[in-house]
Computed example of a mutant assay.
Amino acid sequence: MKTLKTCIIALVLLSVITGCKKEESKTSVPAAENAAAEPAVQVVLDMVVKKDDTFEMFYVEDESLDFGDNKTRVKVKGKNESQEIVFNFPDNASIGNLRFDAGENPEQEEMTINKVIIKQKDKELELSAADFFTHFTASGYVKTFPEKFSFKGIKVNNVYDPMIYGNTTLMHILRELKK
C-alpha cells in the first residue's frame, strides 16, 4: 500500500511539473509583439526633395484651419530619387485636417509627390500622386504643376512660406477614417 501511495504521489508531482513547463511556453510573447510598435497616427509623404530642408506637418482634430502647435518637424536630406518623409503624431491624436509646410529652404527645387499615406489607429488612407491636388490646396506661396504631380515654394513680397492645406474633400475622408 505504501508503494502504491508513493507511486501516486510521484505521478501527481510529475504531471504538475510538466504541466507548469507547458504553461510557460503557452504564455511566451510572439517575436512580432516584442518589436517596436509603429506609431498609431502617422503621415507618410513619398516624394522627391532634391535639396536639404525642414518640413512641418500640422494637424487639427476638428475641421478648422486653426492649426496651433499640433505639429511635427522633420529634417529632410536632399536626394534626386524618391524618399519617404515620415511624420509621427501622438497615439491619441485624431486628425481632422492637415497642413503641410513644404520647407524653409528658398533655394529648394521643384518637389514631386508620389503618394501620401495617412494612418489613423487601425485604418489607413493612401492618396496617389494624381489625387494629391484634389485633396490638398496650395497657398499663394506655392506654384503647383498638377500634370507633373509637383510643386515649388515661391517668395511673395520677399517672404518664403510654402503651405499646402487639406481641403473639404480630405476633411470628409478623414472624418470617415476616424469612425
Rank of each mutant, 00 (worst) to 15 (best):
A129K: 05
T168R: 04
L14S: 13
A35M: 09
L170F: 02
F151K: 00
A35T: 13
E147F: 01
V76F: 04
T112Y: 01
V86L: 03
A36H: 05
L65E: 12
V48L: 07
K121Q: 14
N158A: 14
M57G: 01
K51Q: 10
K21P: 04
E63Q: 15
V76H: 03
S15L: 10
R175W: 12
N92W: 13
I118S: 02
L177N: 14
V76Y: 03
E124R: 15
K155H: 03
Q120H: 14
I85M: 05
V48D: 05
L127Q: 09
E81P: 02
N80E: 15
F87T: 09
T112R: 05
A35R: 13
D53K: 07
L13K: 10
D53H: 07
S64M: 04
N92P: 10
K26Q: 13
V74Y: 09
E63G: 13
T134H: 06
R99L: 14
A32L: 09
K152R: 09
A32K: 15
S28L: 13
K143N: 12
L127F: 08
I117R: 10
I9M: 05
I8Q: 08
L127C: 07
S15A: 09
Q42F: 04
V159Q: 06
Y141I: 11
F55M: 10
I95V: 15
E38Y: 07
C20G: 12
K152Y: 01
V12R: 03
I9W: 09
E24M: 14
E109C: 03
K75D: 15
